[in-house]
Design a binder for these strands. Structure first.
Length: 282
DNA sequence: ATCCAGGAAAACG
DNA sequence: CGTTTTCATGGA
């Protein structure tokens, strides 16, 4: 069993990174190991202190996927600027943003709208089960996330088993767009934040929130500050005054919140967002 | 039954 | 143009 030994200053919590809601295809089984599908690989991994034991991918892949090459302490220090975020940083120490495959991330956050994490996980698992390639690992069958062409070929009725609800046509439409547009990922990656955001929002089912999640989780664009119902509550309670509390988030309020966050937390405001989000329960 | 969840599109003034 | 309504799903 190969292992990665984390350096003393290489702060990392596998559990917090995998269970904070940024990824949807990882499970911690009874045996204490995490199992997940990334691309065409099934990865099995666990952490004991400074040691990561893993199977299913080379060390370079693991290190890159979990962003172990970035200086996490320097990042969290850069936005450790008030008591609220300080508490979140302390509570979630070791949480790293993962480098997700962009295509899967895009569809995942289309499936995430007006929903909750258990439902999102179920939908992504359904899509992989029905359209992905079977992957055998440790006596179990896992499924890769399907290519754009596979979902583009799916009509809305064959997607009905995936329980996407009204999101089904968005998924098919976006899959068709991406299937035709090889290199879309390079295009997005090359654009500055606001332009990349506008470009992503041209896809069906991708609004401000989904675009920010995709930029943050798949493109490491830390200027993105996704605002969902939880983040809106947290920001309203601790940072900025908004008119009404329980109405739908308007575009105007969304922009107000994300611009405040960029100003307040700085370059890594997206990272700050994930700490606030992960610290929301308890 | 009613409300809620990592919202966004479509319809409406 | 900004604002309200609707959308499918399952858990609480």
């Amino acid at each position: 069993m190969p292992a990665i030994l984390l350096a003393a200053d290489q702060t990392f919590s596998l559990n917090r990174s995998l269970s904070c809601g940024q990824v949807f295809r990882w499970n911690r089984e009874q045996d204490g190991w995490w199992y997940g599908v990334v691309g065409e690989r099934v990865i099995k991994i666990r952490q004991e202190g400074a040691t990561l034991q893993y199977e299913g991918a080379p060390a370079t892949f693991i290190k890159h996927y979990f962003s172990l090459d970035t200086d996490l302490d320097a990042i969290t220090n850069s936005f450790d600027c008030d008591p609220v975020i300080h508490t979140a940083i302390t509570k979630c120490r070791g949480l790293r943003l993962i480098r997700q495959p962009a295509w899967e991330c895009l569809i995942s956050y289309i499936c995430a709208t007006n929903s909750n994490i258990p439902m999102i996980r179920k939908r992504i698992a359904n899509i992989a089960r029905d359209f992905g390639k079977p992957l055998e690992f440790g006596g179990h069958t896992y499924f890769s996330f399907p290519d754009p062409s596979a979902l583009a070929a799916a009509c809305t009725s064959t997607l009905s088993d995936c329980k996407l609800g009204y999101r089904s046509p968005y998924v098919v439409d976006t899959a068709c767009t991406i299937a035709d547009e090889k290199g879309w990922q390079d295009t997005i990656a090359a654009l500055p934040y606001e332009q990349a955001r506008r470009e992503l929002m041209k896809m069906q089912g991708v609004g401000p929130k989904a675009a920010d999640c995709i930029l943050l989780f798949a493109f490491q664009n830390y200027a993105a500050f996704p605002v969902d119902i939880w983040i809106r509550r947290i920001m309203q309670e601790h940072y900025i005054k908004l008119q009404s509390s329980n109405t739908a988030l308007t575009g105007w309020e969304y922009d107000l919140i994300r611009r405040f966050a960029r100003q307040h937390f700085g370059t890594y405001c997206g990272y700050a967002q994930e700490y606030l989000y992960a610290a929301r329960d308890s």
